[in-house]
Write a protein that binds this DNA or RNA. Structure first.
Lengths: 136, 136
DNA sequence: ATAGTATTGTACTATATAGAACTATACAAT
DNA sequence: ATTGTATAGTTCTATATAGTACAATACTAT
């Protein structure tokens, strides 16, 4: 499992490069993805949706902000929190990102029947539940 | 898949801690595991078996050597390569590690039949092959 | 109002990971 | 023997990740 995660990360980076996407990488792609799906999010919410620690996000969002992909928008109602919003530039990459995700699935499940994929993904969900029971 | 890897990493670290193992972590455990299985290995071979880049291994093995878990043994036949060998200290942890691995499997596959586990792991191997075909 | 507690995000630090460039060595073709 | 190429590992650099400690702010109970 660990090897798969590892290898798939590297394959995904390669696909991004081949598609000429050099403004963000796999991890940043996942952050953009949840932002595309949900619109504005606070850093804590992004952490919950991506399973990344907030300390990881601070520096990651720094780099993404420097690259013009996201903006930090202070919340006037609650001055502790900051909304993260995607820029127009980042919006322009969404379609390309979806294509790469599809391509990734094709590579991953090459030779699998539809039923096998469904069964496999159900088993993944069962494993997630098993792990979550451990309360980590 | 990414969430499972993330969660299982945390569960594994927790089990290590609960067992009082604080001299190595999950990633280092995987390296020790392939060394226990195969005996002496070169760095390139460890990289192949763990899917870690050799640049990653250089610094990881530095830390493990400093922690007295492994030794670097120059190959006299081929002076380019270096054998990595586990120390007696590391050997003492094998039994504990195996127990933790078993416990990990129990948590992971809770509710799975033996056939389901066999089928699932075959599918994992197929996915690894699919990803390796990409030559990353 | 105030004191205590919870939350939100950041700074600092350590480790993990890998790409690019490099050195040293081995091998292969002539 | 020489020259070119492949292999093994390290150094240097950049990014990714998270733990600890912290500051600022919000909330809650009195």
């Amino acid at each position: 499992m660990s090897r798969i995660r590892h290898l798939s990360g590297r394959v995904f980076e390669k696909l991004l490069k081949e598609s000429g996407v050099d403004v963000f990488n796999g991890a940043q792609g996942r952050i953009l993805y949840v932002l595309w799906e949900h619109g504005q999010l606070t850093i804590t919410e992004i952490g919950r949706l991506t399973s990344l620690a907030k300390t990881t996000l601070t520096s990651m969002l720094d780099r993404m902000e420097a690259g013009g992909l996201i903006e930090r928008i202070p919340d006037k109602r609650n001055r502790r929190q900051v909304f993260i919003s995607v820029t127009e530039k980042a919006k322009g990459y969404r379609e390309k990102y979806d294509l790469i995700s599809d391509k990734m699935s094709e590579i991953f499940y090459d030779g699998f029947t539809d039923d096998e994929i469904i069964g496999f993904e159900n088993q993944l969900r069962r494993i997630i539940k098993n792990l979550e029971k451990e309360g980590v």
